[in-house]
């Protein structure tokens, strides 16, 4: 049952990524050129609702669907890993035109070349794991 719930959420996510065009390489390029409001509108609207949602869940101690308390994990405090990692991610995001969620979606949409991007992303993750202790965090 739970598996079906996760699958349904994923399907909804995939459809949203494709239909919103957030999975389009062109939209990412356009965003970094500041030539349209579209992507900023998507991220901004999601964010405003996300902030209100997160605040409300904490403030009103809203329980999960399974009647448990909801915890939000704080991100580990640091600077360099977020900045350097973020910059490297941004370089790849603009070049491949897809972040991880849309990558999977585009594979489903039938773009065979996106399989190459996903495999390269897995390799990138692996290489990070190997170099982790040598990198500034």
């Amino acid at each position: 049952m739970k598996t079906l719930i996760y699958l349904a959420i994923g399907i909804l996510f995939g459809i949203t990524m494709f239909k919103s065009e957030a999975a389009s390489w062109f939209r990412i390029y356009e965003m970094f050129q500041f030539q349209a409001f579209h992507m900023y509108g998507i991220i901004g609207a999601a964010l405003i609702l996300g902030v209100l949602m997160t605040y409300s869940i904490k403030r009103f101690k809203i329980k999960s669907f399974y009647k448990n308390n909801i915890h939000f994990e704080a991100k580990e405090k640091s600077f360099y890993r977020y900045l350097i990692g973020g910059i490297l991610f941004g370089l790849g995001w603009a070049l491949a035109g897809a972040c991880p969620g849309p990558m999977y979606t585009l594979v489903g949409a039938g773009y065979v070349s996106m399989v190459v991007v996903v495999l390269a992303a897995i390799l990138g993750t692996y290489v990070y794991g190997i170099l982790k202790d040598k990198l500034p965090h």
């Binding site: 490297l88 070049l95 491949a96 991007v117 390269a120 992303a121 990138g124």
Partner: peptide, 11 residues
Amino acid sequence: GGFLVGFGARY
């Protein structure tokens, strides 16, 4: 592109 996304995201 894919490599940077994977490496950067985990970093």
